[in-house]
Structure formats: C-alpha cells, structure tokens
Simulated assay, not measured.
Amino acid sequence: MSSHRLFRFPKPAWLNSGNTRTAGVYAAGALFSLGFFMLIDVASWSKSAMNPSDPPVHVTFVDWIPGICSALGMLVINSIDKSRLSADSFSYSGNGVAWKARLVLFLGFALLAGGLAGSVVVLVLKYIVPEYSWPTTWMGVGNVVANGLVMLSSAVLWVAQNMEDEYTYNLAL
C-alpha cells in the first residue's frame, strides 16, 4: 500500500475505466438538460394557463436569473484545465497560474451557489410569503430543483473529467 494514500481501502479499478468516464459525462449532460427542461416547463406552464388569473403570478425574468447564474457557473468551473490548479511548479504560463485558476474556480462555484441561493430566495419571497396554493408554488419549487440539478451536474462532470483514463496521452513539444 502506498504511503501517499489518504484512506486505507484501495480505489476500485472500475473508476479508471474509459466507460465510467463516458457514463459520468453523459449523466452530467442528462442532469443539466433535465434541470433546464424543468425550468422551461415551469415557465411554459406559467404562461399557458387557461384562466389569466390562474396562476395569480407568472414566471418573469427574475425567475430566470438564478438559472443563468448556475449555467454560467457550470461553464466557468468545467472550462478550467485541472492541471492548472497545481501549476505553480511549471513556469511556461507565467507566474501565479495556480492562484489565478483557483480564483476563477472560486468564482464559478460562487456563481453556482448564488444561483441556488437565488432560486431559494425567489421561492420564498415570491411564492411562499404571499401564501400561494400548490400549483402556483410549484413554479418556485421547480426553479430550486432545476438549479439543484445544474449544480449536481456540474459536480458529476467535474468528477468525470478528473478520472484518470487508461488512454491518457501527454503530448509535449
């Protein structure tokens, strides 16, 4: 057993397979699309009610802001090259590459957390405090679930991208 390991149990061999990595990427895409489908479903249900007074409140741009923040956070987090997070030993990209990458990563996670927190705030202030009934409250709950799914898909994609593949090539000039 290696002395550099944190836990006593070894990592399962299936975690390093290419199929697991591919399944993780597909699962992240499915979670992301399910989250935005839910957001679009809530917005379309809000606008397509037969009676204009039912629901008494509709989805507006304020409801979309948390979803936009979550999508931008996912984009920022998963566009960072993971090797840059510990790249201070490499001098080919200039000084302080690791802290810059960590700062951008922090901003991405802040966007994700802000999106989820914003959707909870919209749920509470727009749907819970005025005491709307269930079908109307679903618009706020769906927004929170959608942002939670985007956050979960970002975590799944981060883990899937960090898996070591048996066919990893390092090309250097």
Rank of each mutant, 00 (worst) to 15 (best):
T22I: 08
T22C: 04
A23K: 09
A23P: 00
A27C: 09
G29W: 11
L31A: 13
L31R: 08
S33G: 08
L34N: 03
G35A: 13
G35E: 10
A43P: 00
S44E: 08
K47W: 13
K47C: 04
S48L: 09
M50E: 14
H58Q: 12
V59K: 02
V59E: 04
V59M: 08
V59A: 10
F61Y: 12
F61V: 14
I65K: 05
I65G: 01
G67F: 06
I68H: 01
C69A: 14
C69K: 06
A71M: 14
A71Q: 05
A71Y: 08
L72D: 01
L72Y: 01
L75Y: 11
L75V: 07
S79I: 05
I80D: 00
D81P: 09
D81A: 09
K82D: 08
R84I: 02
R84V: 01
S86K: 12
A87W: 01
F90V: 14
V97N: 00
V97P: 00
V97D: 00
A101S: 15
A101Y: 03
R102K: 15
L103Q: 07
F106E: 10
L107T: 06
G108Y: 02
F109P: 07
A110G: 08
L111C: 11
L112C: 08
L112F: 02
L112V: 13
A113K: 05
A113P: 07
G114C: 11
G118K: 08
V120L: 14
L123Y: 11
V124N: 15
V124C: 12
V124E: 15
K126N: 11
I128F: 12
V129D: 10
V129S: 09
V129Q: 13
E131N: 15
S133C: 06
S133D: 14
P135Y: 02
T136R: 03
